[in-house]
Design a binder for these strands. Sequence first.
RNA 1: GUGGCUUUGGUGUAGCUUGGCCUAUCAUCGGGCGUUUGGGACGCCUGGACCCAGGUUCAAAUCCUGGAAGCCACGCCA
Length: 483
Amino acid sequence: MAKVQELAITAKKEENISEWYTQVIQKADLIEYTDVSGCIIFKPNSYQVWESIQQYFDKKIKKSGVRNAYFPMFIPEKLLNKEEDHIDGFSAEVAWVTHGGNSELKERLAIRPTSETTIANAYSKWVKSYKDLPMRLNQWCNIVRWEFKHPTPFLRNREFLWQEGHTLFETKEEAEKEVYEILDYYSQVGEDLLAIPITKGKKSVGEKFAGADFTTTIESFVAEDGKSIQAGTSHALGQNFAKAFGIEFLDKDQKKQAPFQNSWGISTRLIGAMIMIHSDNKGLVLPPKVSYNKAVIVPLLFKGKEGPVLEKAKQIQKDLEEFNVLIDDDKKMSPGFKFSKWEIQGMPIRIELGPRDIENGVVTVSRRDITEKEEIKFENLKSRIPEILEDMHNNLLSSAKAKVANSTIEVSSYDDFKQAIEDKKRCLVPWAESKESEDEIKEQTGAKTSCLPFEFENKSVENVKCFYSGEPATCWAYFCKSH
RNA sequence: GUGGCUUUGGUGUAGCUUGGCCUAUCAUCGGGCGUUUGGGACGCCUGGACCCAGGUUCAAAUCCUGGAAGCCACGCCA
């Protein structure tokens, strides 16, 4: 019994989600803590998820015309200081390199907290004419932000991995079109790849990226703790940065103009959202599309009957080659142990194969998202596996959506609102948008806007009063706590 | 950055209040041998730890000071 306690997830998601999360990421072998706070080792089990996200998103943006490049991770101090709002926003969390070997550097170098400055500096040299536009580059890289004291793996790292797209357009319309195009891709990464429900919307005035005209966001809500995760943002920067960095082009009428700029990013935080949303008290649940190995075969090796079972297992592995099936034929562990081990690690499908199955010409298949086992004839396995994977994806997404829907309520009074936030709900409210009221609400309840959802952009606010101030509402907003 | 709690083999822990009997408990884990195997098997052999730096003391895992890291509540962000 003691053994069960130590290997299994002992915390309950619905009782102590932080402790549960800590156990899942360690027992599913996703990360290793290191000697540097906030910097984790992304072990293969979690890095494979990032690779899936990269492959999926990279294909989308390349098809759209974006190209990848790589810019240095060091930013000279004077370059970082060039845009005032920008340095104000990031100075508290920049890590600095001050020495090369034993000698002090004349100008210290920032380790990029984001690359707007480096890339805008390059763009100012590269863009001369309208013919150079649009300019659309992306980079996959690491980022360092040293501000916070209490990191949470994936959700709040000091060093994390992301992609940052930085683009320039001739006109405001073209630029804004791209903002929404990228946001759609982000939403697809969430729902089509990771099976997590995404709410698309605009950030409130108080929450938008400093220096941006507006910020769009994908938000994923964790029903168990009532907190929203900002999973990716796509910013319309307007001409603000271009002007600060002297990016200019000559238009068709021989006039000098500043281009319209966007920036957009998703990060390894998505992995944290995926874990929070799908995993359960047995451990990790990997959405099938981000699991490199779709299935594991656990052969039941009874003494004297190992040969035919192992042989059949290998044959099945070969037949199902495209699913990168593993065989767990470790003789030192009992089958029950292996079942639990693969459940903790989130393996989508487990195929049990023993002498009895071979006699019957079947395998016993379990999927990670439901408890029922299914017997499948050998000859049907190859066609059945993709159906199960697809069904699993759909089931994960729809049950997560149901949880979000159950946790979302519309309220119109501040009293109801306070109660709902206490009950870990996400509140749809009519709101008279202002930074001041949002700050006050945050102060009093701990909740702030997740976003102004696009879904309710056209919902009428005529004759509707703000839930907080009682003034005429200007928009519909989601308020909740956030990660 | 603020407040609270915590840190002992790879992992989970006992010991700490009342310093000595701790070259540190139990389990798991790694290596070996054997017997097992349809939901966390078992026997024997073997390997492995007191977060770091100072201090108090005849004597420190244990007491004191500082630091680091982890967890929780808040703040900021992808």
